[in-house]
Design a protein around this nucleic acid. Sequence first.
DNA 1: ATGGTAGGTACCCTA
Length: 268
Amino acid sequence: MRLVTWNINSVRLRMPLIKKLIDEVNPDVICLQETKTPDEHFPAHDIEQAGFPHMHFHGMKGYNGVAILSRTAFKTQDIHHRAGKEDCRHISVNLESSKYKNGVDIHCLYVPAGGDEPDRDINEKFGHKLDFVDEMTTWFSKTYNETSAAIVVGDFNIAPLENDVWSHKQLLKVVSHTPIEVEKITAMQNSAGWVDATREFIPEDEKCYTWWSYRNRDWKKSNRGRRLDHIWVTEPLRTALKANTILSEARDWEKPSDHVPVIIDLDI
DNA sequence: ATGGTAGGTACCCTA
């Protein structure tokens, strides 16, 4: 199975890029974040025409929004409300598997960005981000155990490792790489023994990014990236991991998202 | 220290 996660930054505006991704990458499942579209305006017809008749999406006007697109049907699908809000940041499905009798759960997450100021006393959005991650930690630890087959993907809006950012030192006080965020996301990773699939293939001493700001004149030349988009799998799926690709070239596609697709191949 | 760009919406919010 080939699974892709991508913060698309408006699914309606970037429908041509989704078709390009399908043509060039041939995925089986696509998880999207920041669809920015209420469900009644979700481009379901176009996506079905592109070969993905099975969809689970949850969106709202203007902000946030998540979607899971699939070539095959889901066994179950759920919407999760997080941190006391209904702001369309977490959905999940269960996919049938030949190897795992209970199927494989797939979670699509859009963790709050958290605003500019890394201090919850003066910035409510930062507090919301920390609370959201805390709630995921608690929920994962009670939902899964060492035998579970599950995958969580999405825009976590946190770059945990030193080489997940262009300058560890210069980003220590920048939201996405502060010590408190790293601590919280590490606790979330430990909550169900999640394996960082990308780092199974790219060693921790190698720089690795999935996002480059729109605010740089030349994203490739300045290369001030961050790894904000993640794919984690439970321990039983570690040996199922076959390949990982970060599709950096998509940052140069016409009218690009500021995030690029992260692709994982799994034998499940 | 500052401001740079992008998307959606409605003249400003979020990233």
